[in-house]
Design a protein around this nucleic acid. Sequence first.
DNA 1: CCCGCTTTGTAACGATCATTTCAGATGGAC
DNA 2: GTCCATCTGAAATGATCGTTACAAAGCGGG
Lengths: 288, 288
Amino acid sequence: MARAKSSTIAEQLNGGRLGLTAADRKLSAALMADYPVAGLASISDFARVAGVSTPSVLRFAKKLGFTGFPTFQQALRGEVSAQLQNPIEKPEQWSSKAPRGHILNTLASAAMENLGNSLRHIDHHTFDDVCRLISDRQRTVHIVGGRITGHLAGYLHTHLQMARAGVRLVPGSVSHWPQHLLDVSEEDVLVVFDVRRYDARVQEFAASARQRGARIVLITDQWMSPVSRLASQTLALRMDVPSGWDSNVVTMFVAEAIVAAVVNENWKATRERIREIDLYFEGGRRGR
Amino acid sequence: MARAKSSTIAEQLNGGRLGLTAADRKLSAALMADYPVAGLASISDFARVAGVSTPSVLRFAKKLGFTGFPTFQQALRGEVSAQLQNPIEKPEQWSSKAPRGHILNTLASAAMENLGNSLRHIDHHTFDDVCRLISDRQRTVHIVGGRITGHLAGYLHTHLQMARAGVRLVPGSVSHWPQHLLDVSEEDVLVVFDVRRYDARVQEFAASARQRGARIVLITDQWMSPVSRLASQTLALRMDVPSGWDSNVVTMFVAEAIVAAVVNENWKATRERIREIDLYFEGGRRGR
DNA sequence: CCCGCTTTGTAACGATCATTTCAGATGGAC
DNA sequence: GTCCATCTGAAATGATCGTTACAAAGCGGG
């Protein structure tokens, strides 16, 4: 019976040297999701969490080279014990599963680089100004995006709505834009997402809003949408990735950061607002 | 479920506020000698290691405020889990303009940590399987998400459409779902985004699709949507941030990675497709 | 489309575990 | 030295767990 070659079960699983079946992978994922504690519960609990049957867990343990589930657990306990003695060496020994050169790794390092570069180039005063503008309850906030960035606009909209009233998403279909424009009044804020392949329609909309007296906040890429000429604040992000398209990971990050900042600004009110929203969402509550 | 007064069992024991008997002290010592792993074995093992009888262990657990030994173990597991999550304090000195402690930096290190942790836990075989499924031109790909993740679903949809035909976004309004369900046929793929505050409707939709013979690919968080039981592939991501909400930066990353992988699979065809799409987008071309 | 293989879950079993009961042990007070 | 209160462990219990056997389901190759 194969005694474990790797020192930890995690390594063995990550190594991919064992032919893992679908059930095995579910178990592996569940175990990794809360490693190694997930495997320290009873076999039936572990099976339930992973969504497989108990025998599958047993086969899993045997495939890893153990004689039974208790033996498997014993090994896990040993790992916990070892890990807790010297918590310092942890980051090193666990490295990404995907082999070097795997697309996940390539893109991940690109994403990290983008995030770092973007932060380096964003003036945090500008960022704070943006957040202050958006936090201002006196102003209605309008959000607009293009074909791709429209989804980010929607994401920002959904979250901002939880933080404050008076947030409006400019709909995706251009035909509704004229009516929407009428709602834009002086002192309002228009958040524009516009990245490469800059959308002429978005630009026109921004120009019109500007004429009606709205302040424009622009979130764009390093090549700068022409909307920047209209904007009172511009956040230029890096979104280079080796994949044919630009990456909006950083855009998403900034959207979330804005939300977090706005929420921070007035946490009490937001909390109350969320509570109320929750009341209307009676269904579909779950999760620990 | 009786909850401990102190945050950890160790604190309670060291506090000395409980009248410990001789057997209790033996147990306490044994537990501390290999904390908390010693307490994770079976009650009889623990008793043997401490040199006491099993009932003494039980009384010990009850004295600590638990209803029984399993409850006690559960608490210990919780502590291990918490302890193993924290001690990663790795964000290097990447010089950002924003001052240390600025929300941008706080969130950025959280985002990087999430990305790292997610990569560490994703089985890249699973990821490859997902991409292979989605690349399969024989299968129609359906994408669905909840209130928040719907935007991610939309983002993925828009991009996948550029890569291949037969990609359908399940609309946001639940009332249209029944009709859409009819379009789901055997051998199709349903990509489900479902993160905490798991959406019961999404779950129902996935169940119905499953019954119609579709393969389910789930993108969820580390706490695992219940949809995972229906899914043939599950990608569990980390999305913890210190901001009241979970972060979908990593979700966005994975969506983009999937697109990149699918495009890679058949770059020629995709390129041709994009060229054609561009022909229909005569307006709004600009950029570098 | 049918066949074989592999994978998976259901159901039964035996084993271990967690718990209770109760009798013996311990230790201090008088 | 005796008594009582408390603590402790042996033994018995019911419950749960881990394991096995087997049948159904899924998946590829002919």
